[in-house]
């Protein structure tokens, strides 16, 4: 009896880890790995809804290369990503530097108020800002009119050249404090003794920033940059909801994911949508690799 129980105990011990990962593996294979492979296959078909397929080989990708709407989507998304990295991240770092001073009282309050917009999901931010941006009565135009004299009927969401600035402004509000949290954590992890040593050597505040702070936070900075680039290239909800489920005036708010959604789930061509998806994935991967290379992430590991 006890022998049997011992054997059973050993048996459950041996197979427990497999049992523990099984639900995860099954779901992951079914809803992660299978669709990933299937999307490669789908990308070589033209489809009309989930039922009818026509094999076209690499035709979808060739068509993408000469598709003016796709070009527009890529251009818009790239502009958005550019500003996300080169405007938003320096501001995030700036806020983190302000908060990182030891003398700041009420740091928790400031940190929360900078971070709080991130709690609002993209769709809800989009609805809120679509009203904030309306001409004549919207909050933004009223404030800008009072402060800078900007015309009250500035049409943020219907003037093609203002759509992108409006989107960048909105995402700035949403994410600047979120990224600040990462920078703040990194700044607080920099060894205090390095600053003391630099001070003894007579380094100015700016020299300390350049030679102690920047190298200290570099791994986190690269991490944040890669993450926000990937996130920016997935832009969809913000313009889609703000522009009333359209790509905006003259397609000024068309993004890659919006183009994927329109082709796959409005027109019903899941094949072309998959081709767009894979172009997005490869593009994002390539940019991430370039960023990591450029910032020397790999060199440090050698």
């Amino acid at each position: 009896m006890t022998m049997q129980r011992m054997a059973l105990f050993r048996l459950q011990r041996k197979y427990a880890p497999y049992l523990f990962v099984t639900p995860f593996i099954v779901l992951f294979l079914l809803f992660g790995v299978y669709p990933l492979i299937k999307s490669l296959v789908l990308a070589t078909y033209i489809t009309s809804g989930p039922k009818s397929h026509l094999f076209v080989g690499l035709e979808n990708f060739r068509f993408l290369l000469s598709d003016p709407d796709f070009h527009k989507a890529v251009r818009n998304t790239t502009v958005f990503a550019f500003f996300s990295v080169f405007l938003q991240l320096p501001l995030s770092l700036g806020l983190a530097l302000l908060l990182n001073r030891e003398l700041v009282k009420g740091r928790d309050f400031f940190r929360f108020s900078f971070f709080s917009p991130h709690l609002v999901g993209q769709v809800f931010v989009a609805v809120l800002f679509s009203v904030i941006f309306i001409p004549q009565f919207g909050l933004l135009n009223r404030v800008l009119h009072a402060v800078t004299g900007l015309a009250l009927d500035t049409k943020w969401l219907t003037n093609p050249s203002l759509v992108m600035p409006a989107l960048i402004l909105t995402s700035l509000w949403m994410y600047v404090g979120f990224n600040m949290i990462y920078f703040l954590a990194a700044l607080q992890a920099v060894d205090r003794e390095l600053y003391d040593a630099a001070q003894v050597d007579g380094a100015s505040a700016f020299q300390q920033f350049l030679h102690v702070t920047i190298p200290g936070i570099r791994p986190v900075a690269v991490f944040v940059m890669v993450l926000s680039t990937i996130g920016s290239f997935q832009l969809f909800e913000l313009p889609y909801v703000m522009l009333g489920n359209s790509s905006g005036p003259e397609g000024a708010g068309l993004t890659v994911v919006m183009y994927l959604y329109n082709n796959g789930f409005v027109s019903g061509d899941l094949g072309y949508a998959s081709a767009i998806g894979w172009s997005l994935a490869l593009g994002v991967l390539l940019i991430s690799l370039v960023q990591m290379r450029f910032t020397g992430t790999w060199k440090r590991e050698e």
């Binding site: 079914l30 990933l36 999307s39 990937i230 994911v257 796959g264 949508a273 998806g277």
Partner: peptide, 17 residues
């Protein structure tokens, strides 16, 4: 490896599934 891939790639085949 799959964490590096944007989820939108999966949408079309996932819908079919």
């Amino acid at each position: 490896a799959t964490m590096m891939i944007p989820v939108q790639v999966l949408m079309a085949p996932l819908y079919e599934l």
